[in-house]
Nucleic acid binder design. Structure first.
Lengths: 105, 105
DNA sequence: GCATTGATTGTAACAAATCTACAATTAAAG
DNA sequence: CTTTAATTGTAGATTTGTTACAATCAATGC
């Protein structure tokens, strides 16, 4: 009955969007933030990635990348890392909310 | 003036969506199509990926993944690979069009 | 000055992911 | 039972990513 719920609406395929997770090299290319720095932010708990199995590589989704872009922007604006992290938290809460609503239909 | 054109609208960030390109392992996980088979379809010219430099690895974007899902579906429905490929071409033309319009604003 | 702290960067040695190129297998069709 | 389409297997090389340890650099406080 619904064997083609994709492809109809390329705009709204949140299901697929969620699954689009990329490696750290790609994230670095996309955001312009060096891999080393991304790992550092992660150490400090500001950014989060996940691993698909034991002893594998970091994966980042759409929202994590957004977050990295936000942090970068704030740093460029002169905030400290900690201050940027705090500011970004609020922002991400809102984005996540919108995202959630949209992907719930 | 527009130093935060992302984050405002997670729905519409086609800019980021375009850059979200994933490796073949991820594509395989997402679609359920074995890596080997994806490469084979590519050899036959049905699927396309790109490489970011000489001697690097295949990357797939959102639309390529959609395409793979479509081919898979048609094969499951009993079409030949070639027939599926043909059918998918038409479908992708339309999807690309919509996508283009949306990302143009 | 100079020691402290926050932020970043460098790199070696190892592990995971992917690549190509060759060949084998399987199923359907004539 | 041979042909063709489609898929799968795999070795050996290359690319990408990992951790852990240490070095650098700038700002701040004493």
């Amino acid at each position: 009955m619904n064997h083609d719920n994709h492809a109809d609406n390329p705009l709204m395929d949140f299901d697929l969007l969620r699954k689009l997770v990329v490696g750290i090299g790609e994230v670095s290319d996309i955001t312009g933030v060096p891999q080393r720095q991304i790992r550092y932010w992660e150490e400090k708990g500001i950014i989060q990635s996940y691993k698909e199995g034991e002893g594998t590589t970091r994966k980042y989704d759409y929202l994590s990348i957004k977050k990295i872009l936000l942090v970068k922007e704030l740093l460029d604006d002169g905030f400290t890392l900690d201050a940027a992290a705090k500011k970004v938290e609020e922002r991400m809460r809102m984005i996540n909310e919108v995202f959630q609503k949209l992907s719930d239909r």
